[in-house]
Design a protein around this nucleic acid. Structure first.
Lengths: 156, 156
DNA sequence: GGCTAATAGTTACAATTGCAACTATTTTCC
DNA sequence: GGAAAATAGTTGCAATTGTAACTATTAGCC
């Protein structure tokens, strides 16, 4: 039986804290991407994985980014409209398209990556290395647990 | 100078990890609230703070929940429509309303709080107490840092 | 070979959200 | 005392997102 008549302090409730923190961080980052590169967060995520794994399909992008296929589809459409991503039909399987960054896309990617890493470093600046590793381990543990509790896919 | 030509591993990028984790957790919780109580997350947050601080104004609710006033206004409207929250005009300041849970609202609140705490406990089950405290400290540090980097308000 | 189920990706529609503008009231300050 | 600024809260509109349905293609299987 769970603690009866317990009071709940919202500011100490983990789902609340994580949500507020993640949202603040995402918003700050989104402002940078949008102002400097006219990029939304889902688009940035697609570019990030295509920078690392060229010539993968939208479905694989979805797995890497934890986004559902609709969100990926829209992000890819936006990126192609801006000439930042190219799609090449897969001759083996004509349902698929192989996606990769165009030259323009690679230029944007090359500018954003250091910016993103710098932002991350700034956020983590107050955490000593040991606590940083401990935080990362804790996040991994939570992630694994949540996936077992509610085995779903996809993200924002 | 930030690391040039660095590759960025999205799964290790903190803003991404936090966003994915927070969203998974929020979705699992939201499913519970919605199925069992026809409650959305912003509404649940309002109920949580009104359970702890009765007779506060919407503006104070917004501060406690880190939501903007529009979101609070809509959540309160929904809760009043369901008879879960009552508003009493403040005679000292007729712009304000003093909000509190109705009897029905307190009943829902009493059911949800243990449920929410149980969910939190389930998620944290794999983390030893020491690491749990360390995680909470790290989140507080990040939160403080983010607020200094980008002094804004409000959340999802 | 041909029928059924599965998969890749898109489109359509509804719900949620954010931003800006708005109303009503109170406070400030000359 | 009254004009201007500030505050509480709501509303309208646009952007983002989620769910479900849809098309096209491939794989499984009898």
């Amino acid at each position: 039986m769970a603690n009866p008549e317990a009071c709940l302090e919202l500011p100490e409730f983990l789902p609340f804290r994580l949500s507020v923190l993640a949202n603040r961080i995402s918003r700050s980052l989104a402002a940078v991407y949008r102002d400097r590169f006219d990029l939304r967060i889902p688009e940035w995520r697609v570019m990030a994985v295509l920078g690392q794994y060229p010539d993968i399909s939208a479905e694989e992008v979805a797995r890497h980014t934890c986004m559902d296929k609709v969100k990926v589809s829209r992000a890819v459409a936006g990126l192609m409209a801006h000439g930042r991503v190219l799609r090449q039909p897969d001759p083996q399987d004509r349902r698929r398209g192989r996606l990769r960054l165009s030259a323009a896309g690679r230029r944007v990617h090359a500018q954003i990556v250091p910016l993103a890493l710098g932002f991350q470093a700034e956020i983590l600046a107050d955490l000593p290395a040991a606590e940083r590793r401990s935080l990362e381990a804790a996040l991994a543990t939570l992630q694994a647990r949540v996936e077992r509790v509610d085995p779903r896919r996809s993200d924002p």
